[in-house]
Amino acid sequence: MTSVVVFGAGGRAGRRITAAARARGLRVTPVVRDPRRHPDVADAVAGDVTDAASVAAVAAGHDVAVSAVYTADLDPARLYGDGTLSLLDGLTRAGVGRLLVVGLATTLEGPDGLKVYEGAGFPAAYRPFSLGRVAELAALEGGPVDWVLFTPTMQLVDEPGSGAYELFDDRRHVDGTTTYADLAAAMLDEVVSPAYHRTQLTVRSPYHGRGEGEQTAGDRP
Rank of each mutant, 00 (worst) to 15 (best):
P206L: 04
L137E: 07
T151M: 04
S162M: 09
G14P: 01
V41P: 00
A217M: 08
L114Q: 07
P194Y: 15
V31M: 02
H173F: 13
H38K: 09
L137D: 09
S86R: 11
G11M: 15
G11N: 12
E136P: 00
Q200C: 05
T179S: 08
G218D: 13
L108D: 00
P194W: 13
E141W: 04
F129A: 10
A56F: 06
V4E: 09
H197M: 15
A42Y: 05
L85C: 02
A46I: 13
A120E: 07
G163W: 02
S3Y: 06
G97A: 05
A57N: 08
R36W: 15
G14S: 04
V55Y: 12
R98W: 10
V145P: 00
A181F: 14
V134E: 14
E214R: 11
D34C: 03
D175M: 03
Q215D: 11
A60N: 04
S162E: 10
A57E: 13
F122G: 00
R24P: 02
S205N: 11
A53I: 15
V69T: 02
E212C: 10
T106N: 02
T107G: 00
S54D: 12
L100M: 05
P111L: 02
G161K: 02
L156F: 14
G25N: 12
Y70F: 09
R220T: 12
S3G: 13
D112V: 01
S205E: 02
A59M: 04
G209Y: 12
A120K: 11
R78E: 12
V49Q: 01
S54E: 14
H38P: 00
A139P: 00
V32K: 08
L108Q: 07
G211F: 15
M187G: 07
L201G: 01
V49M: 13
H173A: 01
A186G: 09
V69M: 09
R37F: 13
A59I: 07
R172P: 00
P76I: 07
R15W: 04
V145K: 05
Y80L: 03
V116F: 03
G119W: 00
A94H: 01
F129H: 07
V28D: 01
G132P: 01
A13P: 02
I17H: 10
A139I: 03
G97I: 14
G161Q: 07
A185M: 15
Y80T: 14
Q215R: 14
V64S: 06
E214D: 13
D51H: 06
V28H: 01
A20K: 10
A138W: 15
R198L: 10
P76K: 11
T2F: 14
D146L: 09
A60S: 06
S86W: 00
R127W: 05
A181S: 14
A139W: 09
A139S: 11
A164N: 03
T106S: 04
Y126D: 03
E141R: 05
L74K: 13
T71P: 06
G110V: 10
V64L: 08
T107A: 07
E109F: 06
L87Q: 08
H38D: 03
V134W: 12
S162C: 05
D158V: 05
